[in-house]
């Protein structure tokens, strides 16, 4: 546990001392803010119209019309941002030959992987935290239901975990950061849209593809629902990604 934190702390240090983190965070916050503004603007227009027509803005739900689409959009932006956060994890270590330092130290490979996972999660968690001013603003001016907001953040975090574990896997495959980013972006997007194959395939396979899709499971969280099926899916997804990373790194030592 101590070793994991040593690795994570080192990675966090290099994140915060590099311009990559600041540019990624800025882009994330600007896109997120712009989308939030437009969604909110649309909502206020709608409620204004509804008020004029019916004489009362009843039936318009802040959770459904603002928070849920905001989360959806955040998931898309994260899809673009996370590969750029994870790409350096192993690729850079391998390129600059610093991986030998970690490998010749008395720490287990699993601890290295989990440490790097933790560092990426903290970085992205921080980005999400910075963007949560939007939710705070809604709480200030409106009265959203808190349950779906909390489960929404939980869902987004779990989904982030999946992206990160795929990103680490991609980064372990190569010593080129760009290739790592492209592979992890491709993987993440594919796992997002894999459910689209459901229509073309039979009912059995279709259900499976639907279940494998990252986004299907997020829906429940955004509606305020925590189901064990979704939790198991996300957690096993993360573990599987980390396991693949472990296998790749372990086998690369033999070559």
């Amino acid at each position: 546990m101590k070793n994991i934190w040593i690795i994570a702390k080192k990675d966090l240090g290099s994140f915060f001392s590099s311009p990559v983190f600041y540019s990624l965070t800025s882009v994330f916050l600007i896109l997120n803010g712009f989308i939030f503004f437009n969604i909110l603007n649309f909502f206020s227009l709608q409620s204004f119209q509804a008020q004029q027509m019916r004489g009362g803005g009843m039936g318009l739900n802040l959770n459904e019309m603002v928070i849920e689409p905001s989360f959806h959009n955040m998931a898309v932006i994260l899809l673009l941002i996370i590969p750029l956060v994870t790409m350096r994890s192993f690729a850079e270590e391998k390129k600059s030959k610093t991986f030998a330092l970690l490998l010749s130290s008395p720490i287990h490979l699993i601890e290295i992987i989990v440490g790097k996972f933790l560092a990426c999660m903290i970085v992205i968690g921080l980005m999400i935290l910075l963007s949560s001013y939007s939710t705070g603003y809604l709480m200030l001016v409106g009265n959203p239901e808190m349950g779906p907001v909390i489960t929404g953040y939980l869902g987004i975090l779990l989904m982030t975990g999946c992206y990160v574990s795929m990103g680490l896997f991609a980064s372990s495959l190569t010593d080129n950061q760009i290739i790592a980013a492209v592979i992890s972006f491709g993987l993440a997007l594919f796992m997002w849209i894999i459910g689209w194959g459901a229509q073309a395939s039979g009912s059995g396979l279709g259900q499976l593809l639907e279940y494998l899709s990252l986004i299907t499971h997020l829906e429940h969280f955004l509606k305020g629902l925590i189901s064990s099926s979704d939790l198991v899916y996300y957690l096993s997804f993360i573990l599987f990604g980390l396991f693949l990373t472990y296998r790749v790194l372990e086998s690369s030592r033999w070559r």
Partner: peptide, 23 residues
């Protein structure tokens, strides 16, 4: 190793402290 495993963005002191903690 043949190529010293140095993190080029780290300060010498921090790097050595990191190496010490790793060991």
């Amino acid at each position: 190793p043949e190529t010293p495993p140095l993190y080029s963005d780290m300060v010498v002191y921090d790097y050595l402290a990191f190496a010490a903690r790793l060991r």
